[in-house]
Write a protein that binds this DNA or RNA. Structure first.
Length: 514
RNA sequence: GCUCUGUUCGUCUAGGGGUUAGGACGUAUCCCUUUCACGGAUAAAACACGAGUUCGAUUCUCGUACGGAGUACCA
């Protein structure tokens, strides 16, 4: 059950380590929608406690992506807020006191073991046939920490500037229980958990500490995150208890993971590329490799389509309704209806949504896309807006992406360079050729009234007068004019291309097609 | 390995002790059309397996199989 006893405040907490994974985008979406649904606040907190993984530009990328999707934060490192700062690196100083509080209350301890010693411990444990290789209640008694050292020795080492970490002291036997909104009742025995590091030797907190402290301080009511966090949730619960914050503990909701289309593993960059779809919302430039990873936006996906598609990956209403605007999603969303099972990411439906939302656009909006495409592909054209608008109208029902207005109608902008093979074999003969000749002779009579509908009617009349079969004859003309066997209304194509151009195309076709 | 977790058409899912197991995407066919789309119609397509409980189980329980996650001084 979703607990709504206190003001809803949720956070999306990405790490600025690279492009934002599409799974993270979905997490942000669910957080946003949940917050808005309950008149709550949606915050974005940057979890940059790992200085070695920090990537320049990743944070601004995250904000740009979320803005594009309309998932704007009420509080964040970008817009600020009463709980600022919202960047953990800027909160560094405040974590230590909490870690020390835990040491004082006996819930944590200092540990001086080096990486080598840790490796050695694990190796020995493995050789001894131990099934649990972790730093825990059993093994900590053999390690170098404030539990095995005298207080004096511990102090001496710290004062001497020796590197140390602070670890949680996980109880030997204790049941840790909590209720997850999507997974239900959880019960984990503390003996299966380890003494996770809370404070790193560089003075930075680990995710676990920072996350719990910040969620508490920022009065987060619900933690909505990916299922990969489920195994560490008991640790987080234990931290709340250890701090004495049990009554302020947020409610957890662990979202099912997005899997590769073949179901093998978490959705990965590699598999996404293999299956030919983006995994990042926006283009992401990887400096070290000097390559750009495709983004949904640049591929032509509309934000409303992506949101709609993502919303349905792991969530569904009890009705058959599947088309939701963000606003509508906020109305109908219900966290309790989030599914438990992981979800395979198949792009097909996203394409369908894109096509669907494109058809909802006005011709004027499509015109903007067309112009953007021209700029992007460096295409020059001397068509008037009036003409371009007609092109948009002509193409709107047959495209999946905005750039298709141009890409699928190239023949409107340039002379055909090749002719559809199958079409030629099938239609460039007999009646078809006769009809093309007929058109070549008679089209000039329409020059003064060169308009799609008029051309079409006359074409139809001519077919009838000559006793030709429409299906035999029109494809040949189409071939001559556009080079293709399929496509938009031929009359309109001819109007848009223009009389002189059509005549030229027919001449060229007769010369070129053999 | 260990801990956690999951399993309804190809995919996303609805449903839930007695149903013709519903929808959407995709696929196929048909209608519309000069063609391609759009639109409309139709079809093929699923309860992982085995026990138990029950008059009855896809639905509840337990196992099995298979999948996923975690297992760092990363988040």
């Amino acid at each position: 059950m979703v607990n709504l006893d206190r003001p809803v405040r949720v956070r999306f907490a990405p790490s600025p380590t690279g492009g934002l994974h599409i799974g993270g985008v979905r997490t942000a979406l669910y957080n946003y929608v949940f917050a808005k649904k309950h008149q709550g606040k949606f915050l974005i907190r940057i979890e940059d406690t790992d200085q070695t993984r920090f990537v320049e530009g990743a944070e601004s990328y995250i904000f740009e992506a979320l803005h594009w999707l309309g998932l704007n934060a009420d509080e964040s490192s970008e817009v600020g807020g009463t709980f600022a700062p919202y960047r953990q690196s800027e909160r560094k100083a405040m974590y230590r006191q909490y870690a020390e509080q835990l040491i004082e209350s006996g819930h944590a301890y200092y540990a001086f073991d080096t990486a080598e010693e840790l490796d050695l411990m694990r190796k020995n444990l493995e050789e001894a046939g131990a099934k649990n290789l972790s730093y825990n209640a059993l093994t900590r008694v053999n390690m170098t920490n404030s539990l095995t050292l005298t207080p004096e020795e511990t102090k001496k080492r710290i004062d001497a500037g020796e590197h140390y970490v602070i670890r949680i002291k996980m109880p030997k036997k204790d049941d840790i229980r909590f209720e997850d909104i999507v997974k239900g009742k959880m019960n984990v025995h503390s003996s299966t958990l380890d003494d996770k590091v809370l404070m790193k030797s560089d003075g930075m907190p680990t995710y676990h500490l920072a996350n719990v402290v910040d969620d508490y301080l920022m009065e987060i009511s619900h933690v909505i995150r990916g299922e990969e966090w489920l195994p560490s949730a008991p640790l987080h619960v234990f931290l709340y208890q250890s701090f004495g914050w049990a009554d302020k503990m947020p409610q957890f909701a662990h979202l099912p993971l997005l899997l590769n289309p073949d179901g093998q593993g978490k959705l990965s960059k590699r598999k996404a590329a293999e299956y030919g779809f983006p995994i990042f919302p926006l283009d992401w430039f990887e400096k070290d490799k000097n390559i750009t990873i495709d983004g949904f936006r640049e591929k032509g996906y509309l934000p409303e389509a992506l949101n709609n598609f993502l919303a349905l990956l792991g969530w569904h209403t009890s009705s058959d309704e599947e088309v939701f605007s963000l606003e509508h999603l906020i109305e109908v969303f219900d966290m309790e209806r989030v599914g438990k099972a992981s979800v395979k990411f198949e792009i097909k439906k996203a394409e369908w949504f894109n096509q669907y939302y494109i058809r909802l656009k006005t011709n004027e909006e499509l015109l903007q896309y067309l112009k953007e495409t021209f700029v992007k592909l460096n295409i020059k054209n001397d068509f008037s807006d009036e003409k371009l608008l007609k092109i948009c109208n002509l193409m709107r029902d047959r495209i999946t992406f905005p750039q298709d207005i141009y890409l699928d109608a190239k023949y409107l902008f340039e002379l055909p360079t090749e002719y559809d093979q199958k079409g030629v074999a099938k239609n460039w003969q007999g009646e078809g050729l006769l009809f093309v000749d007929f058109c070549q002779n008679n089209l000039p009579t329409l020059k003064e009234n060169w308009e799609g509908e008029n051309i079409k009617h006359n074409l139809h009349d001519w077919v009838e007068q000559n006793g030709y079969k429409m299906g035999k004859v029109m494809p040949a003309l189409r071939l001559a004019v556009s080079g293709a066997s399929g496509g938009a209304d031929l009359g309109m194509i001819m109007e848009l291309v223009g009389f002189d151009n059509v005549m030229e195309r027919i001449t060229i076709a007769k010369k070129t097609i053999v």
